[in-house]
Each structure stands twice: as structure tokens, then as C-alpha cells.
């Protein structure tokens, strides 16, 4: 990375019309769990509006990497800059980044004691300090966008897995994030519910132009929606490229093995 690029990344948020600056920048990021070296020098730049799919075997560090981007995990070496804000121990920076970055979890993590609408409108009310009426109006719009306005007053326990995950997506969108992180959003779903969640995500990528990082094994989704696919193994990005390159012409043997297993089952 050149000095000019680093200066650009540090110069604060990109202004409208500001062309080319990455919205997410990872530079030689390392992380250890105890003695276990889980991220081994990750460098990555993601531009606004880009949809990046991260694939790889379990234990390869995919989830840890995206959890570092909103500081659910802290990295121990290297730099992470999100929307012009560098992630450090400074809690103000962390809070600022978290309110720009939405996250969707494998196990949904909806709040079981709140209704779908309360799940969606809680954060705008408490973090953005919007009045209840405005938060709920936006919440209802979002529930409509994920296709379940009629479930607004239902508790998560009464929803199917796919419905819960769609509410979770609406909940993340309620903070009007610039970036959405998806941590294996369909891995805990019954097969017949995967498509409804993927459809919502496709809509988000195509219509809203959202910047998205998606950790997933859904290669159909990757082929159709991703601008770029990363393949991770043992804490490092071993292959990176556009879907057509990734599926037709992988170079790394580990990628070839992974693809042969996942595509020909």
C-alpha cells in the first residue's frame, strides 16, 4: 500500500462524489485465540456497493474476520479502517463503526422477549434517539421490505427460522447501515427456508446497492450476486477473484478441493 492510499484511508469519511476510496480496509490483520493463530495477515479492500462472498472450510477464520470488522472480536496486529474510522480500543470509534455496520448472525439472535417490531425499532430508539413513532414507522417499512408486515406483533418464538432471519435482517437495516455483514445467514435454516432469506439479500444487493460481506456456503448465491469471492484457509485469503474466475479457473489446490466437494455432492 502506498502512502497516498493510507493517507486517503485516514482522511475521514469519503465525501459524496469521492471516487475510489475503500469503505473497508484491512491491512495485515492478525488475531490469536490464546495460542491459536486464527487470522494470519489478512489484507483486503472493499469498495462502496461491492458484494463480497467469503467461502472456505470451517475453522478457516471467515467468521472471525467479519466479526473483527465490527469489533465483536479485536485484532491484535495490523489495521482495520471502516468508513474512514480506524478500529482501536477507543470505545467512541467502536460505537461509531457499529452504528454504520449491520450484522446478521447464523443463529439469528433475535431478542426473544420482544416482538418482531420491537426487535427492529429498539436500536433506532435507544441509539439514534428517534421518537417511538418514527422508529416504529421505519420498523414497519422494513418488515414490509423483508416480506412480513403481518408478523410485526409476533414474538420470535412463533416464527419459522427463515422468518426469524428476515426479521434479523430488518433489525440490522433499521440502523441505516452503510455496510452489512452476514455470518453464515442460511446455515441454521431448513432447506425450504434458505431461498426466502437469499431473496431478501439479493434484493438488498441489487436494489439498495448495499456494501455486503457474506460468509456463506451458498455457491449459487455467490455466482449470481457476488462481485468478488474470497476463499480463506487456515487464517489467510488464499484465492480471490470474480465469480467466473473463481468457479471456472481456481488456481489454489485448496480451492479446487473445496469446490469439487461443495459443487459435486
Amino acid at each position: 500500500m502506498t502512502i497516498a492510499e493510507v493517507r486517503e484511508a485516514e482522511s475521514g469519511r469519503p465525501q459524496p462524489g469521492d471516487s475510489g476510496g475503500p469503505i473497508i480496509l484491512l491491512e495485515d490483520v492478525h488475531k490469536w485465540f490464546g495460542r491459536l493463530h486464527v487470522l494470519r495477515g489478512i489484507s483486503l479492500r472493499i469498495h462502496p456497493g461491492e458484494v463480497v462472498v467469503v467461502a472456505g472450510p470451517s475453522g478457516s477464520g471467515k467468521s472471525t474476520m467479519i466479526r473483527c470488522i465490527n469489533r465483536l472480536e479485536s485484532h491484535q496486529r495490523g489495521r482495520i479502517v471502516v468508513d474512514g474510522i480506524e478500529l482501536t480500543d477507543d470505545t467512541r470509534n467502536i460505537d461509531a463503526v457499529r452504528s454504520e455496520v449491520g450484522m446478521v448472525f447464523q443463529s439469528f439472535n433475535l431478542f426473544p422477549h420482544l416482538t418482531a417490531l420491537q426487535n427492529v425499532s429498539l436500536a433506532p430508539m435507544k441509539v439514534r434517539r428517534w421518537p417511538r413513532a418514527r422508529s416504529e414507522r421505519v420498523g414497519l417499512e422494513l418488515l414490509e421490505r423483508v416480506g412480513m408486515p403481518e408478523k410485526a406483533h409476533v414474538y420470535p418464538g412463533q416464527l419459522s427460522g427463515g422468518q426469524q432471519q428476515r426479521v434479523a435482517i430488518a433489525r440490522a437495516l433499521a440502523m441505516q447501515p452503510k455496510i452489512m455483514l452476514f455470518d453464515e445467514p442460511t446455515s441454521a435454516l431448513d432447506p425450504e427456508m434458505i431461498q426466502e432469506v437469499l431473496d431478501v439479500m439479493k434484493g438488498l444487493a441489487r436494489e439498495a446497492g448495499m456494501t455486503m460481506i457474506v460468509v456463506t456456503h451458498e455457491m449459487g448465491f455467490a455466482r449470481e450476486v457476488a462481485d468478488r469471492i474470497l476463499f480463506m484457509d487456515e487464517g489467510a485469503i488464499v484465492e480471490e477473484g470474480a465469480p467466473e474466475h473463481f468457479f471456472t479457473n481456481p488456481t489454489h489446490p485448496r480451492t479446487k478441493l473445496f469446490l469439487s466437494k461443495i459443487l459435486h455432492q
Binding site: 457499529r98 452504528s99 455496520v101 441509539v127 433489525r171 440490522a172
Partner: peptide, 8 residues
């Protein structure tokens, strides 16, 4: 984690 990720 979900609560913190939302910015609470």
C-alpha cells in the same frame, strides 16, 4: 453480541 452489533 446482537445488541452490541446494533450499537447499543
Amino acid at each position: 453480541e446482537a445488541a452490541r452489533a446494533l450499537g447499543l
